[in-house]
Design a protein around this nucleic acid. Structure first.
Lengths: 220, 220
DNA sequence: CTATTTAGCGGACTGTGGTCCGGATAACCG
DNA sequence: CGGTTATCCGGACCACAGTCCGCTAAATAG
């Protein structure tokens, strides 16, 4: 008998990466979550949020969250798959507004501005995101190697940056350049620059602007 | 009583990152390793190598290595600190010749060629390194977030790339650009490009060359 | 309302990385 | 060679992520 959940754990509340609607083709008409399950989900998230706020991301264990939420450990994993999934869920709301911002928000982050400016704004926004949510992001990304890159969230970023590069009239390999640019915005690296190298956020923003400027034609 | 080892576990056999000789100032005149300890070290490395070759990096546990080497688990950790440390030790020889190559080897990788060419060669060599040792590298880098960047090995790369950029007459922030370039050569990313995105090694090499070309003045 | 089905629950259990510390022994000294 | 010391050893032990499976109860059908 197959005991794996019919619905992938984080497909329900957190779209996070609307990019592969076409990649998961018409999976059975998304069944409704049971009432007690929904209740537990919010209880767990609330408990997790409180504990993370209190003890820091690394000071919180799954057992602890389960216990605080008054729920079995299995329930945590049923809902969120693994620790990273839970952390991602905690970031969900912010992540969503972040994505809204560059997909449908006002220029220069959203549509309307020239692609080069949008790209600069994108990086600046991402840096800000990392400044604020650094530890949580780090925890959410600290899964098996490559997992992060395979996840929806990253696919969304890739798609966005690639599209901007396409519009900008860049001549070389667009996908590769997207990887490189996103590489400059990787949580681990940015936190290293901020905390170990003691670079200021303003400095990083400036450098990012320069980088984009150096790579894209000025008129794009 | 302090039971931590007087000498950091991997300072003895594996210099790996000669860059911060000045950062660890004149630590006590490196004491000699005891005979049985030295014997155990090679036994452990041999066992680990064999097991990794047989079952793959991820199919091998620390217990298993200890048992195969006929040694207690504590001994493993005493020698190598943690799992990553052991993996790094397995890479040590290759890593050393790699570093030798760009520090003192023949041009264009080593001194003699113009910095732009050296940088291109450096990236190509690194890509090759990852193609061959990908899994081991991934395992060696999969520690706590940021650990990788704080390690000697990475510091050495940073120093090298930064120096090349300095020589090349690049105008912007050299350190930042070094981070970006190294970001394009991160094991996790390259493996993703090779395995998930099905990019060919030649393609990646070409893209790297283009990237360097786009960022550095042609005459450098 | 009762019966049936099955998503969901909980918590004991497992596997693995990493720690601890009493005891063994290599190295050194007289 | 015998005594002293501190390096090193081993494996029991711990913490924590993730799994398993028998049971509960929500949903649904009749």
């Amino acid at each position: 008998m197959d005991r794996s959940p019919v619905i992938a754990p984080d497909r329900i509340p957190a779209v996070i990466g609307n990019v592969d609607a076409r990649a998961l083709p018409m999976l059975e008409p998304i069944r409704q979550e049971r009432a007690d399950a929904a209740r537990n989900r919010v209880t767990i998230l609330a408990a997790a949020e409180r504990l993370v706020a209190a003890d820091g991301v690394d000071g919180v264990t799954m057992d602890c969250i389960a216990h605080t939420a008054g729920v079995g450990k299995g329930t945590l994993f049923r809902h969120f798959g693994d620790r990273c999934g839970l952390m991602r869920a905690l970031l969900d709301e912010r992540e969503r507004t972040f994505q809204e911002g560059f997909i449908r928000g006002p220029a220069p982050l959203g549509p309307g501005a020239p692609p080069r400016e949008r790209l600069v704004a994108f990086g600046e926004r991402m840096l800000e995101h990392i400044e604020i949510q650094g530890d949580l992001l780090a925890a959410a990304e600290n899964g098996p190697p490559g997992e992060r890159l395979r996840h929806n969230v990253h696919a969304t970023y890739r798609a966005h940056v690639t599209a901007l590069l396409g519009d900008s009239g860049y001549g070389g390999d667009i996908d590769y350049l997207a990887d490189v640019l996103l590489g400059a915005l990787v949580t681990e690296l940015v936190l290293f620059q901020l905390r170990d190298l003691r670079r200021s956020p303003e400095h990083l923003r400036a450098c990012w602007g320069e980088l984009v400027g150096a790579l894209l034609p000025a008129s794009a």
